[in-house]
């Protein structure tokens, strides 16, 4: 527990200090935190740790004792993702330490219809955030004191952010009686579709040359 650091005790100071290790060998505070919690880190751009639904409350309790706050709860439906994922749904808990500024995402995988323990007993801020995930994504949180719809109207059936919920775009009616259906004219592509040309753009490769500022061509704009 000591390595977690308390509110008053900042264990991992970033930069400075007499016992400073070389920059390469300096332990990543969040990675160490994940190790201390006994979790498996996920290979992702943001520090993410995998948690099972059973461990969630215990892990959250430890983080809360260490002074972390719950910033956000993100529900994701991976039902239409290009790569296979362990389960269809995932709930991410965005926790943050307000004094030593460590951020960690806790990821829980769950099937459709599975429920998660509510973190309301741990963090009061989970109240609205979990209600929102329940409303928009349909993940049920057990023991939540007030699990009602929060954003969508009461008569809306379904959970809008699920991938099988249509966006329900209204076609545009023109004077001459034609309808334009927005998806027909949408050029943007999801990861599933290859598109007409298969052009994927590319990331930056090699060095970057300095771009010259735009120059007005001789004799003004043509």
């Amino acid at each position: 527990m000591d390595a977690l650091g308390g509110k008053d005790q900042v264990v991992f100071t970033v930069g400075g200090g007499a016992t400073e290790t070389p920059a390469m060998a300096r332990p990543d505070p969040v990675a160490q935190l994940v190790q201390t919690l006994g979790l498996k880190a996920e290979d992702a751009a943001e520090p993410t740790a995998l948690v099972t639904a059973g461990d969630l409350e215990a892990v959250a309790g430890k983080l809360k004792t260490a002074g972390f706050m719950l910033m956000d709860v993100v529900g994701v439906d991976y039902g239409a993702y290009v790569q296979p994922r362990p389960q269809r749904f995932s709930v991410l808990y965005n926790v943050y330490h307000p004094y030593d500024h460590r951020r960690l995402f806790l990821r829980v995988w769950l099937r459709d219809g599975e429920s998660l323990p509510s973190l309301f007993p741990v963090w009061k801020s989970a109240n609205y955030l979990e209600r929102e995930v329940y409303d928009l994504m349909g993940v049920v949180f057990d023991n939540h004191p007030d699990l009602r719809k929060i954003l969508t109207p009461d008569d809306l059936e379904g959970h809008p952010l699920r991938k099988d919920f249509p966006i329900e775009e209204t076609p545009t009616l023109f004077r001459d009686g034609r309808f334009i259906d927005p998806p027909t004219f949408r050029a943007g592509m999801t990861g599933q579709s290859a598109g007409l040309t298969g052009w994927r753009g590319s990331l930056r490769k090699g060095g970057t040359r300095e771009m010259e500022p735009p120059v007005m061509p001789e004799g003004g704009p043509k």
Binding site: L156, P160, I167, E168, T170
Partner: peptide, 12 residues
């Protein structure tokens, strides 16, 4: 006209 929000939530 619903503007840029052509979706399930907004009256068009």
């Amino acid at each position: 006209s619903g503007g840029m929000f052509n979706n399930y939530a907004v009256v068009q």
